[in-house]
């Protein structure tokens, strides 16, 4: 399992390749990549991502450990960036490896749902004229309910 909270960009190809090479006894790998989206018709200039050093790593490790507990996973990777990102830049990725694809897909969705609203990151969108904190959505909280047990 690898958790990385970093300011620097990551290479999707290198990370995916290394993950696939190291995962043993598996039949399926799922990767998900989050990209800075310009939801405001070309006006977004920068997305600033703030986080809580210390708690972030702890929360991501807890989320990844829970995924490993729930699904029979060969390996888990979570990379999440912070700092100033431009539209089109990759913010984060998760990868899961399992013997079968259902577990790999489900675990990846679980990781995404949890890290969206349980990992201490906050996004701020900056345009030429204004800056706005991205608000959490009710759907994000609802998405967690389907994993309740």
């Amino acid at each position: 399992m690898r958790i990385s909270v970093q300011e620097a960009p990551f290479d999707l190809g290198v990370e995916s390749e290394a993950f696939a090479r190291n995962a043993e006894q598996i039949g399926a790998i799922v990767t998900f990549t989050g990209v800075v989206r310009d939801s405001d018709a070309g006006r977004l200039q920068v997305m600033e991502i703030e986080h809580y050093p210390g708690m972030t790593e702890k929360a991501l490790a807890a989320i990844a450990n829970e995924a490993v507990e729930r699904w029979d996973l060969g390996d888990v990777l979570v990379i999440h960036r912070f700092g100033r990102l431009a539209p089109g830049e990759r913010i984060m990725m998760v990868a899961t490896a399992a013997r079968h694809r259902v577990a790999a897909f489900e675990a990846a969705e679980f990781l995404m749902d949890y890290l969206k609203s349980r990992a201490p990151f906050w996004k701020k969108e900056l345009s030429a004229t204004q800056s706005t904190w991205v608000a959490a959505k009710d759907e994000d909280e609802d998405a967690l309910n389907r994993w309740a047990r």
Partner: peptide, 10 residues
């Protein structure tokens, strides 16, 4: 103790 708005990761 830390205070913050609902988180928006991902």
């Amino acid at each position: 103790v830390a205070f913050f708005p609902p988180m928006t990761g991902g």
